[in-house]
Write a protein that binds this DNA or RNA. Structure first.
Lengths: 246, 246
DNA sequence: TTGAATTTAGTGTCGGACACAAAGCGCGTG
DNA sequence: CACGCGCTTTGTGTCCGACACTAAATTCAA
């Protein structure tokens, strides 16, 4: 059992470059927003060719540690949430997680999100949710649109809670689960109404700053989802074929 | 509002290559374990030079979609959990999340993990936990070692629950939070004992397959952690300077 | 037939080269 | 003197060709 330091398998130059720059960023030598030198200069610094350096840069880029606002400018970035969402979502899809797994976790995250939102959400944000909800009501029966609006509703709810960790953790999970609604809806048409009821009760609870009630309705909302999955016989089905992510 | 398809900003050849191969994997044309042709051949297929192709490969590699078991062999991989853990952990560290944020989420994940473990854990796994626990008892007072063992305990507990989504979501969060113990321990020496008590109660609950009790003790365990953070005055402190991730 | 020696193929790296676009510059005109 | 337009410079994306080194494949010997 060794300390969790860097694995020493770094004999490839491009890997060393990526590691070194990563270390500089994590160490704080380079801060988000800082601009990096041109490729030629960097290559010189590291004593490698541009080709080799570029391979290292590609790696950092796809790690989200650097990015190019303009083709001319290479700067240090803080990893963006949506990028992590994509990666996690892809991983979960490829490991063929089931509805049950997604649901079990969502049963925790969404109620917590609702609770925190009730505690920290601003009036403006609540109004925003309200108008989003209005759109949802108008879209009753339109599956794709409903799914997209639902994702949005829950994401905004989570953002209102002022907890970035929760936001990061729940996003890919909620995305996959809610998308499963596509397979459920045909079996349970009345779920549109129940969803609308739940959402409006959550909003009402937020206005009253009633964290308990918000949490309770969120829980019921997600429980409903599970009943739908059961009706559709999806409990242990794979949630999503990866291609749907694209 | 357009469908969530790929943004069309794919004028760079290396990007197109990465996207194309990614699509083939997601679409199922390529399955985990499949071997890919050599670089020369691939380059030919895509009509680019090896240099360009390699940049695309580096990107896929760091996305965890392909990897090289031997330098000679390039094959399709399913993204590994620890890779995602690193990425998420790094992101959270760079966005300077607070102890409070980490703790709020952990208050949900660990009790759920304990509950699921009580429902699905095998006798073997429980015995494994038991011996790990014995090590922890022996390490009382040794901070670094205690932290590492604690991380391990909770990770194994989560794995016992047969929920990969929970495992994926909680790992980076728990890692960051538990590591904060380093800053707490000096202020609250008796926490070693409370941790030992909590862990052994969880194990006992697992043996009885008492999900409620397991969940309860996990919750108390994490609550303790929060009290420690309060004593140390860390509630809204940044959990970790990124460098500690290395 | 099995093991050792040798060929072969493929990766990692190098160096140089060119087109194209953006950033910086100078110039002429109002 | 200020402003806009075209030119130069700089840097990225891509290509080409080459070579060392090592792991896999093949041949050869016992």
């Amino acid at each position: 059992m060794k300390a969790a330091g860097k694995p020493a398998q770094v004999h490839f130059a491009y890997q060393q470059i990526a590691d070194e720059i990563e270390a500089q960023i994590l160490r704080g030598d380079l801060n988000p927003g800082d601009q990096l030198p041109g490729e030629a200069e960097l290559a010189g610094q590291f004593g490698v060719t541009r080709s080799t350096l570029r391979e290292g840069l590609r790696q950092l880029e796809s790690d989200g540690l650097v990015h190019r606002p303009s083709p001319r400018r290479l700067e240090v970035a803080v990893p963006q949430a949506d990028q992590l969402t994509t990666r996690s979502g892809r991983a979960m899809a490829l490991m063929k997680v089931t509805f049950r797994e997604l649901w079990q976790v969502t049963m925790m995250t969404e109620p917590l999100a609702a609770r925190l939102a009730a505690e920290h959400g601003t009036a403006d944000e609540i109004n925003g949710l309200q108008s989003l909800h209005a759109e949802t009501v108008a879209a009753e029966g339109m599956m794709k649109r409903t799914i997209s609006l639902d994702e949005d509703f829950h994401t905004r709810l989570a953002d209102m809670g002022r907890n970035r960790v929760l936001g990061l953790a729940r996003e890919p999970i909620a995305l996959l689960l809610f998308r499963g609604f596509e397979q459920i809806a045909p079996f349970a048409p009345k779920f549109y109404k129940r969803q609308i009821e739940a959402h409006s009760n959550i909003i009402a609870a937020l206005r009253d700053r009633d964290a308990d009630r918000a949490e309770k309705w969120a829980r019921m909302h997600i429980e409903d989802f599970w009943r739908g999955a059961q009706i559709a016989g999806l409990e242990d089905e794979i949630a999503l074929n990866p291609r749907a992510l694209s």
